[in-house]
């Protein structure tokens, strides 16, 4: 592990900008032949409406706990070496990174599958909420049918 990577936790919720290189360094391991990285960013349009910004809020203590559980579950289901999940909170502009998931494994199939699992589960159960702010209003995403 490099010196800089030891500063950052594997499971991390922060208002600061997320850095893909940090996540890659965190999960890098000589035993691994591949690292799969998913980066979720703020999209410019939702159903034809132009997004000005996103506002994320989290129930922090539980969000970190659920992110840790997801990482643990992924490690028990696939032969992966290391998983990092970093999620941003606060106000994000179009193009900024909201989430990064990094998975290192000896072989790529496990890394891809565990990474997919982690982002899918995160969207289902981690208590984080995002509000899309448009020019003419705002919407809590997924709140209503």
């Amino acid at each position: 592990m490099s010196v800089s990577s030891s500063v950052w936790p594997l499971i991390y919720l922060t208002e600061m900008p997320l850095l893909p290189q940090q996540v890659i360094e965190l999960v890098s391991d000589p035993a691994c032949g591949g690292i799969d990285v998913f980066i979720g960013s703020v999209r410019e349009h939702t159903q034809g409406r132009r997004v000005l910004r996103l506002e994320f809020e989290a129930y922090e203590q539980m969000a970190v706990k659920e992110m840790q559980k997801i990482a643990d579950e992924a490690c028990s289901r696939w032969p992966v070496q290391q998983i990092a999940i970093h999620h941003r909170t606060g106000t994000l502009q179009v193009g900024e990174i909201a989430v990064i998931i990094g998975v290192a494994a000896a072989h790529r199939a496990a890394a891809f599958e565990a990474c997919r699992f982690a982002i899918d589960e995160l969207k289902q159960r981690v208590p984080i909420w995002k509000k899309e702010v448009f020019e003419d209003g705002e919407v809590w995403v997924a709140a209503h049918p």
């Binding site: 989290a58 539980m62 969000a63 999620h87 982002i119 969207k123 981690v126 208590p127």
Partner: peptide, 10 residues
């Protein structure tokens, strides 16, 4: 007790 409406992280 925490009220959790539909989550939308990621």
């Amino acid at each position: 007790v925490v009220l959790i409406p539909p989550v939308s992280g990621g």
